[in-house]
Write a protein that binds this DNA or RNA. Structure first.
Length: 840
RNA sequence: GGGCCGUUAGCUCAGUCCGGCUAGAGCGCUCGCCUCACACGCGAGAGGUCAGUGGUUCAAGUCCACUACGGCCCACCA
């Protein structure tokens, strides 16, 4: 192939040029004919497209891409799909804000609706179908932005293998998997207390909770024994006294032994409640005796369930206390309730404090405290606990046997880094209930069930009507079940469609099954599943990783991947965690424009696996410099002959010595990659390369230029080494390496073979030679530098004192050393290492 | 309350699993150099009680114990 080396070529525009070429050449196209052992399959995280782009989005994906490129060059056919996580609440919220709309499911579909140009304020209400259409429109836009970023960064995904968690295939996969869970008894519905977000009007799962420190107040409140004396309890939620069903203390708490088995009456409401014992009651908290309400917190739920207590709930789905007087309150109690009926919990709390103070049942003043309160991670107000019918998938939270099985799955996984496995274990060990998958929202995969409506008009939840596979995906809110007419919807003797959707994790837990076409191409699926790696962030081990493990355990009886590679957190340049609320989010595009995509890739690849990494412009600058250096060094190495050279011409000791050290670098980088340590791989390649340009290239320059007998060896060695370096850097710097490769090689560097030590067979010499002359050259440079002379300054005489081995090694490349140092004469003697240089 | 990770040069980080010459790199800083691949460059230099304490060892940044500080995760929030 004839050389086509541009005279002057910078980095600018390389990403566009090569992205287009790779697309048209199908460089990263997955070859579907390959067999499982030839394939390396990656379960790429589908980014939440409605989220903002930030450096965290770049970090992990680039690291994974580097590894994908390594595997591809190592001979694997890499299955590297890309998904978009577009279903779920984040998209709904974005649509609401972007267009100024809100979903009102009671409104009909408006065929002529078009979204407002500007966000509408106040929001306009639209029907469910119109709302979902807007979700589709906006996510399509968002997905383009992400794809553009990924292409600019050079991710080697196969853009023909994409999916979205709301697309038809994902819906079908998700519904099919759910129906399988149902058929096997792994999914069930129940009417029970759930954590409820009063703003989003939906139930939330344990994995979506977070604790936030909130202000509150301890109230000491008197309950009355039959003899009229007081028992004080401490509570932060006096508004729930009307929901009190019992008092509880620890069974061994000596202070309350007399009370167990007796009853007390609640203040203001005068309800008689039993005093019971339970181990969860903590003698050290408050007065040691607590009121059990339905429901103030998750412990209440446990007590209520285990002690078989009645239900006296007053908090409604909207977070207000119900308007009508509860049936268990009569007389004065009903009167007291009328004061707080219809209020939000926090309003009722203040009112109750006043009333209790007035009645003398409040001891002292409420004491302000800060305490952790459970929030939905995306919510703004504390969660309430309400009773409602929801769907669950078993996850070991309520069964020891399943929990143990899932813990074993966690041990079967190879965790990179290893300590991340602990987070999985802790999460599984700490589960308190099954996985709540139903959500009372709109943009998501529907729960694919209808229920018979009895002749009495009741919904028969115990006998759901299941669609056949060939009808999936179904929307029970608009589709009619087989054997019914649409007119029978919600009619006695007819049917009722499940109104809920599944949580986004219920679908994204199936990304291997979606990307692998489990539902429509089982043969293909066997060739990519279980996948090789699941790369992801640490914060979603409890959600995405765990739920994927659960689904795969049930559906396939295996872990979904062999290895989980967990990347670190991204911190802002001041080493603070980036968050939108602090306003320190760094977006990638401006940085890519300033430093170039390879500089940003270089930064990402220098973050160690699993290690928190700060956005560091300094590191990006170094990456940019490395890319430029590769261009320039390549131009030099390729400037001597216009045709391919014969490696057997590499005969000079210095050249063969250089190849020995390069072979060692190849070995080191390969070993690092095999342990998923891309950062060590690039470090090794880079160290070797800078030594190459700084020392070897300088030493060999004269011989390469002078057309003497040593020239062919120099030319061949330079080209051979360059061919190796380009491949070593290809996983990290895909554009510049491809550019240089195209100057003198056929095909793509990204489909060339990863360098191996076998290539060096018969070409390597003693590593000592290059080391020895580099060391002496360094001393000569120091002398020139000390003399404030140019590096071109002539040296009359150099006296080397060193041990025998170093002298012997140096002599083998003496001509190169003299030329590089511009030295006229060199002498050697044995002894402690010193170099005397006498400048001309 | 439990757990995980970290603390090495002014800054950002390697090195710790598997103990061994004088603890490395880059940035920044200082000094020099337009050297025919590269001034988007090249060369040289200064800069470190390896968080602290104690222990194991011939030998500790590296192994063990404890402590402090920082970050993260979990926890039944009376």
């Amino acid at each position: 192939m004839t050389r086509n080396i541009p005279d002057k070529r910078g980095l600018e525009g390389l990403e566009t040029k090569w992205d287009e070429r790779w697309e048209s050449d199908g460089t990263y196209r997955f070859d579907v004919t390959k067999t499982r052992d030839e394939i390396f399959a990656i379960d790429t995280p589908p980014p939440t497209v409605s989220g903002s782009l930030h450096m965290g989005s770049v970090f992990g994906y680039v690291q994974t891409d580097a590894h994908a490129r390594y595997r591809r060059m190592s001979g694997k056919e890499v299955f590297y799909p890309m998904g978009w996580d577009d279903n779920g609440l984040p998209t709904e919220r974005r649509v609401q804000n972007y267009y100024g709309v809100r979903c009102d499911p009671s409104l009909p579909y408006d065929r002529d609706f078009s979204p407002p140009e500007q966000p509408h304020d106040p929001p306009i209400s639209i029907g469910r179908r119109n709302f979902i259409e807007l979700c589709h429109i906006l996510t399509a836009e968002d997905e383009k932005v992400f794809e553009n970023l990924w292409r600019t960064l050079g991710l080697s995904v196969d853009w023909h293998q994409t999916y979205a968690t709301i697309d038809e295939l994902s819906q079908r996969t998700s519904q099919k998997a759910f129906l399988n869970n149902l058929a096997r008894g792994e999914a069930y519905s129940q009417d029970a207390p759930v954590l409820w977000d009063i703003d989003f009007q939906t139930a939330v799962a344990q994995a979506e909770l977070e604790d936030r420190e909130k202000g509150g107040a301890h109230h000491d409140i008197a309950f009355r024994k039959p003899d009229g004396s007081a028992v004080y309890i401490e509570t932060t939620r006096p508004e729930l006294i009307c929901s009190c069903v019992a008092l509880v203390a620890h069974p061994e708490d000596e202070r309350y032994q007399e009370l167990f088995g007796t009853t007390v009456t609640t203040p203001l409401f005068g309800v008689e409640v039993p005093v019971v014992s339970h181990e969860l009651a903590d003698p050290d908290k408050g007065t040691g005796v607590a009121m059990i309400c339905t429901f103030g917190d998750t412990t209440d739920v446990t007590w209520w369930r285990e002690l078989d207590l009645p239900t006296r709930a007053v908090i409604q789905l909207d977070g207000r206390l119900q308007e009508e007087t509860p049936e268990w309150l009569t007389g004065a109690g009903a009167g007291a309730y009328s004061e707080i009926a219809g209020l939000f919990a926090n309003q009722a709390r203040r009112k109750m404090a006043e009333m209790l103070a007035a009645s003398g049942d409040l001891d002292g003043e409420p004491r302000q405290i800060m305490h952790p309160v459970k929030f939905y991670e995306k919510g703004d107000r504390p969660l309430e606990i309400v009773t409602s019918r929801q769907w669950y998938i078993r996850n070991g939270g309520r069964e020891e046997k399943l929990r143990k099985e899932l813990l074993v799955r966690g041990e079967e996984l190879d965790w990179v880094p290893e300590f991340m496995g602990v987070r999985y274990r802790h999460w599984v060990e700490g589960l308190t209930g099954d996985w709540l998958i139903s959500r009372q929202r709109y943009f998501g995969v529907a729960i694919p069930l209808w229920y018979p409506v009895t002749e009495d008009g009741d919904i028969d939840y115990a006998n759901p009507i299941v669609p056949p596979d060939d009808r999936l995906p179904v929307d029970p809110r608009s589709d009619t079940p087989d054997g019914f007419e649409e007119s029978q919807r919600e009619q006695p003797g007819g049917f009722s469609g499940d109104p809920d959707i599944m949580d986004t994790w219920a679908t994204s837990s199936l990304t291997p099954q979606i990307a692998g076409h489990w539902v429509d191409d089982p043969e293909f699926f066997t060739r990519v599943f279980p996948m090789d790696i699941r790369p992801q962030g640490p914060e979603i081990i409890r959600t995405w990783l765990f739920s994927s493990t659960v689904r795969s355990h049930f559906e396939h009886g295996t872990i979904p991947w062999h290895t989980a590679t967990i990347n670190g957190w991204i911190l802002d340049p001041d080493r603070k965690k980036m968050s939108k609320s602090i306003g320190n989010v760094v977006t990638p595009m401006p940085l890519i424009e300033e430093y170039g995509p390879e500089a940003v890739r270089y930064w990402a690849c220098n973050g160690r696996p699993g290690v928190d990494t700060a956005v560091d412009f300094g590191v990006m600058k170094i990456g940019r410099r490395l890319a430029i250096k590769i261009l320039n060094a390549s131009r030099f190495a390729l400037s001597f002959s216009d045709s391919a050279v014969d490696p057997t011409e590499i005969t000079e000791p210095l050249d063969r010595s250089m190849l020995a050290s390069l072979a060692a670098a190849v070995e080191g980088a390969t070993a690092a990659f095999d342990e998923y340590d891309y950062a060590r791989a690039i470090e090794i390649a880079e160290k070797s390369f800078w030594n190459w340009t700084d020392d070897y290239v300088e030493l060999v320059k004269s011989r390469a230029y002078d057309d003497g007998p040593g020239a062919p060896s120099a030319h061949a060695a330079l080209q051979f080494a360059l061919g190796v370096y380009l491949r070593l850097f290809a996983p990290f710097l895909p554009f510049v390496t491809e550019e240089v490769w195209s100057w003198w090689k056929e095909g793509s560097v990204h489909r060339s073979a990863w360098p191996s030590t076998e290539e060096f067979e018969g070409l390597t010499g003693e590593p000592d030679v290059l080391e020895a002359v580099s060391r002496i050259l360094g001393e000569i440079r120091r002398a020139k530098s000390d003399a404030k002379a140019s590096m071109r300054a002539e040296v009359e005489q150099v006296g080397v004192v060193a041990d025998r081995e170093l002298i012997d090694a140096a002599r083998k490349a003496e001509i190169d050393l003299l030329a590089a140092g511009r030295v006229e004469e060199i002498t050697y003697s044995e002894g402690e290492f010193t170099v005397e240089s006498r400048l001309a």
